[in-house]
Design a protein around this nucleic acid. Structure first.
Lengths: 352, 352
DNA sequence: CTGAAAGCGCTAACAG
DNA sequence: CTGTTAGCGCTTTCAG
């Protein structure tokens, strides 16, 4: 239908400009909605550009504008499927806002600091740190360099770094109330990594709510990591404390824990109720049917993108989204051993 | 210890050059190992640069060299945890080779074509397409533009696009042999999406091996997608055919299928053996203990990076890595109902 | 081995 | 509204 170039040298604004007998500035302006250009002029340029297959070169533009329209996403291991979801939402949300995502996958043990020079080299407009640790020294150097840093599901005490996270404290408190309402009286907590703010907050919420209602807690374990295996081991240890409910720091651990419980002959939820945190896809699989706190990923991703690239330097430097308690079989004594339908239990009962 | 700038304007090669009384060219050369520079001169420059905190700006360099040192990673949804692993390995491998990864997460139904203009804008050196469909028209346009396109776990018949994948046909054949050795005689196949090459190849291997050994197959289902739910439904349907073994097109489906089987009272593996494909982390969880074909991700990622950025324009345009059969409880009739140890079954028995 | 000059592709300030 | 001019930060001939 229309001609198409076959040369490998890419076109420049000069090419389309000279073909139309206008200046390079005009084709630049034509692609900038905010620039004032005669409507028919703009149309003529855009038409010619599309016919030729011309697209403004982002590298050239970045050099001039000092903005690459790229946001760096830094994350550690993705052993926890929750982070795969986070990554997906964040990058989609960024695309919607006209940004691209540069991915930095850190090897275990490696911290952000070592990769920072590379980020700087690419003039990224902002950095979203998802599941990795950053030292406060580096963080302030970043802020000084004028770039924005946003922490996702992490907070860094002592630095004014904007962050967005789920209400871990509130979620844990919801869980306590739910378990107590189910008739549980001996609640235990299986912690993940001690040095992550998510884990610390979930534990704090759990303990504080228990204290408020005057109920002693049955026991807790400290974990090295947050894996299926850690959950398994935690459950084995916690069995010594004879709990009637265990709150695991995240879903992956809870799944491991449930397996241990089943093997030891403890029925879930009749003998021991189990609740996790995150609402990963596997939690909804009816094999597991794990009660959990659902993190509002879409809203969290949107907030993160706002903080990273929108220039609403508003007051909300720490955005906290409430999570939703999703009650499934693992903690629902009322429905325990009730009849099951024909389709997998992807739908779940929500609390009233 | 050493002084550190606190200005937000970033340093340029000019800054360090003028401080040392040399030309900008020299500092550029100092950072290029291939350039000929007097050793002590290079040291002087590098020292000054590090003291100042100077790093060459990648955008400026890209403009000049026409190489951004960025590779685009295109992928669809990450509902299947296998792709999270793929992403992680690919980006790590790229970093090792000195490249950064630009991530393109496509919404369901969206194809690569629509995002292509953006990729072009950033002068990415190559594109690795992981789990998405690309039209052959677009593919050839890409090749014409001089950039390299590599398909990961996908092939696009009719185009000479380099690809790297696991030996799906061979893996499926291994599975048939294994199941037959276990005494199974009525093998069924639960397919995933009909339009993915992985699914097609796995089915072909399965059927061809059955034909070779003269064994009829017990039945198969066609899936719309590749989810847990699809596996569940497939298992329900396949039960009508009274199979004694089911090969699911991937692990996620197999997990869904096993759940359906358990609910219907079919014991795994005693009544029905189950095998998946991919070896996602959840397959090793002892809850599931799913036999599967492990894809050699590290090697596959390395190959993909080679094809994408190394200039070994060798003959191997289609790299196929063999998978490894991992036998776990779900297909191991010999060990079925055997005693279990104290630790989760992360280790697995390999075939002799 | 080093310096000077040119230019990658683009946008923005300044005139008209 | 449009053209001209001047760089963004870097590498790369080309001379010396």
């Amino acid at each position: 239908m229309r001609d198409r170039e076959r040369q490998s040298r890419s076109l420049t604004s000069h090419d389309v400009a000279s073909m139309l007998g206008v200046s390079r500035s005009m084709v630049s302006r034509a692609f900038n909605p905010a620039a004032s250009v005669a409507p028919e002029m703009r149309k003529r340029i855009i038409d010619a550009a599309t016919a030729l297959g011309y697209q403004p070169n982002a590298i050239g533009r970045s050099l001039q504008t000092r903005s690459s329209k790229i946001v760096a996403l830094v994350l550690g291991t993705m052993e926890n499927p929750f982070y795969a979801q986070v990554l997906e939402r964040l990058s989609r949300e960024l695309q919607l806002a006209g940004f691209q995502s540069l991915l930095f996958s850190l090897s275990p043990g490696q911290d952000v600091d070592s990769q920072l020079p590379f980020l700087l080299q690419y003039n990224v407009d902002a950095v979203v740190i998802v599941s990795a640790s950053i030292s406060s020294g580096v963080a302030t150097r970043w802020i000084d360099s004028g770039r924005r840093v946003v922490l996702f599901n992490r907070t860094l005490p002592g630095t004014p770094l904007p962050s967005v996270s789920c209400d871990n404290v509130g979620g844990a408190r919801q869980i306590v109330d739910h378990l107590v309402a189910q008739g549980c009286r001996r609640l235990a907590f299986a912690a993940g990594r001690k040095d992550t703010s998510t884990n610390i907050e979930r534990e704090r919420g759990f303990l504080s709510r228990l204290a408020e209602i005057g109920m002693p807690f049955a026991g807790k374990t400290d974990g090295e990591h947050c894996t299926f295996n850690d959950g398994y081991k935690a459950a084995v240890h916690l069995l010594d404390h004879k709990p009637d409910a265990i709150f695991f720091a995240n879903d992956v651990m809870a799944l491991g824990g449930m397996e241990a419980l089943r093997e030891r002959g403890a029925r879930v939820p009749e003998d021991i109720a189990v609740v996790g945190f995150d609402d990963i896809p596997a939690a909804a699989w009816r094999t597991n049917s794990l009660s959990t706190i659902r993190q509002p990923l879409d809203q969290m991703a949107a907030s993160a993108v706002d903080l990273a690239v929108q220039d609403n330097q508003g007051p909300e430097l720490k955005v906290i989204h409430p999570g939703t308690l999703v009650v499934r079989d693992s903690s629902d004594k009322g429905h325990a051993a009730a009849g099951r339908g024909d389709a997998p239990a992807e739908t779940s009962r929500m609390p009233v």
